[in-house]
Design a binder for these strands. Structure first.
Length: 493
RNA sequence: CGGGAUGUAGUACAGUUGGUAGUAUACUUGGUUUGGGACCAAGGGGUCGCACGUUCGAGUCGUGUCAUCCCGACCA
């Protein structure tokens, strides 16, 4: 094991490769024996579960309820909204048969041609269609609205190239689908949800994000507006970390979801949808990790504190165990998750490296030598700083330290991002600099031609029109035409 | 779907002009260790991606096929 773990040195050389190895070595996930699919291992899933739990509560505070809709979507549903089907058609897995049979040589199975489905079923790439087909039956009157449903599920998109967490054929996510009586209410909900995502990213994941609205070409298929949160990874590339879509009446019309309003007149329902996926795990990993491995924010770390004893012989170990268990008990009372690792088949050095690799925020080393003086060594994962602290009152100290780590890694990521955001008005300069990563705030004339040209020549895309910066009119750096505002341009994952 | 590469032990790789399947690491057992990725000894594990062909003989040569990875196009 030891040698395999040591070569996490590629962060500066090849960020992608470094990322892949980190995901595997930190025991988060691995490539499945199925094309483009991923096995999320217990440690990785524990982080995802924490994310789910927090997000779920945030949704529920806004009146959202959880529900579940089918995995399989009849092909005809998908084709009802023209833009939507065009956006997803290229990456759908299709179920065509419902039975297998033994082959002629009796050493395997083949698809039974007799079991061909009349209408093929699509494995959901997203659930707007099947959900709106259902909403049709739920919505008759303005009194039935709004409907605020969320589902936690898996979806499948047959991507050409996949990467653990960032882009896998199958991924886990939540998708919220709301139906409203008015345009204003739906638009309000769209914005509300992107704000929740931003709050979650920054407060819990400690990942600073830029909120904004997507350009027409980058918009979700079938949406009138797509709001996004964009995070910057350590190589300066952007990662779209969550989206919220205002769908207008497109799905209401496509699925004939009409209700009678207060004036007793029929009207189509207004829709939103919004989602975040296991891609957030990728954002978490790529934002904070260093050459020693993962760095997890305390708010999401499955293990917040690990205690490692160092001692010889049964007598010493018994003494250390006793002390450790009392610390464990006290930490648990404060709601801090703690692991005491007194396994004797691994040496302390191995454990140090292993828990650093897994991003455990705080490590205590309980040694016989220190214990005599009432001291314990404490190390924080974010800075790797060690100090000796009195065991008396250690619990409070740790609680404060966890808060400090949470703030510190956010600040570190924020400083990094802010120092890599540039205003740029010269296209030649932009072309040169964008290769090295970073976010560029540039004037854009709003045309698809300009957008396409930038993408073709630099591989960078317009991530969004950001909300957070003061906007003044200017001149498009490519076309020289007038521009209403600056947009955020970057190379993206 | 274009361009390139690779399939040999759980993993990472050697394998020369065709001639008994190797190394490191991981794993198992026993012992000594334990303040930053321990050491010694013994042991288990591979129809060399698959199929066909050439040959007395194929991991090695040929043809086909499948799969994976990298670079593009596509994407949360």
């Amino acid at each position: 094991m030891a040698k395999e773990l040591k070569d996490l040195t590629k962060r500066s050389v090849n960020y992608s490769q470094w990322y892949n190895e980190l995901v595997v070595k930190a025991d988060l996930a691995e490539q499945a024996d199925v094309r483009g699919c991923m096995v999320i291992k217990p440690y990785g899933y524990a982080i995802w579960e924490k994310m789910q739990h927090i997000l779920d509560n945030m949704f529920k505070e806004t009146g959202v309820q959880n529900a579940y809709f089918p995995l399989l979507i009849p092909k005809s549903f998908l084709s009802k909204e023209a833009e939507h089907v065009e956006g997803f058609a290229k990456e759908c897995a299709v179920v065509t048969h419902y039975r297998l049979k033994t082959n002629e040589t009796h050493d395997g199975v083949v698809v039974d041609p007799a079991a061909k489905l009349e209408e093929e079923l699509i494995i959901r790439p997203t659930s707007e269609t099947i959900i709106w087909n259902t909403y049709k039956n739920w919505i008759k009157s303005y009194r039935d609205l709004p409907i605020l449903c969320n589902q936690w599920c898996n979806v499948m998109r047959w991507e050409m190239r996949t990467r653990l967490f960032l882009r896998t054929s199958e991924f886990l996510w939540q998708e919220g689908h709301t139906a409203h009586a008015t345009r204003e209410e739906a638009e309000e909900r769209t914005k509300q949800m992107i704000k929740i995502y931003a709050k979650f990213a920054e407060e819990y994941m400690a990942v600073p994000v830029i909120q904004g609205v997507k350009s027409e070409t980058e918009r979700f298929a079938g949406a009138l507006d797509t709001y996004t949160i964009e995070a910057m990874m350590q190589d300066g590339k952007a990662l779209q970390s969550g989206t919220s879509h205002f769908l207008g009446q497109n799905f209401g019309k496509a699925f004939d979801v009409q209700f009678l309003n207060k004036e007793n007149k029929p009207e189509y329902a207004w829709a939103t949808s919004w989602g975040v996926s296991t891609r957030l795990m990728g954002a978490l990993i790529m934002t904070h990790s260093d050459d020693n491995g993962l760095v997890l924010p305390p708010a999401l770390a499955p293990i917040q504190v690990v205690i490692i004893p160092i001692g010889k012989g049964d007598e010493q170990m018994n003494m250390l165990n006793e002390k450790a268990y009392s610390i464990v008990e006290n930490l648990k009372k404060l709601g801090i998750s703690v692991k005491y690792d007194n396994a004797d088949n691994k040496r302390p050095g191995f454990k140090f490296a292993d828990y650093e690799l897994k991003g455990v925020p705080v490590r205590l080393v309980l040694g016989a030598r220190d214990l005599e003086q009432g001291l314990v060594e404490i190390m924080r994962r974010d800075t790797l700083e060690k100090e000796s602290v009195s065991i008396d009152g250690i619990e409070e100290y740790i609680k404060n330290l966890l808060d400090d780590i949470q703030k510190n890694i956010f600040k570190k990521a924020l400083d990094f991002r802010n120092s890599h955001i540039y205003e740029c008005d010269n296209y030649e300069e932009f072309k040169e600099r964008v290769k090295d990563g970073g976010f560029f705030l540039c004037h854009w004339d709003g045309t698809e031609e300009t957008e396409a040209k930038i993408k073709e020549e630099t591989q960078a895309t317009i991530r969004c029109v950001p909300f957070m910066f003061e906007q003044t009119p200017g001149v498009d750096m490519v076309s020289g035409k007038p521009s209403k505002c600056r947009v955020l341009i970057a190379r993206a994952y």
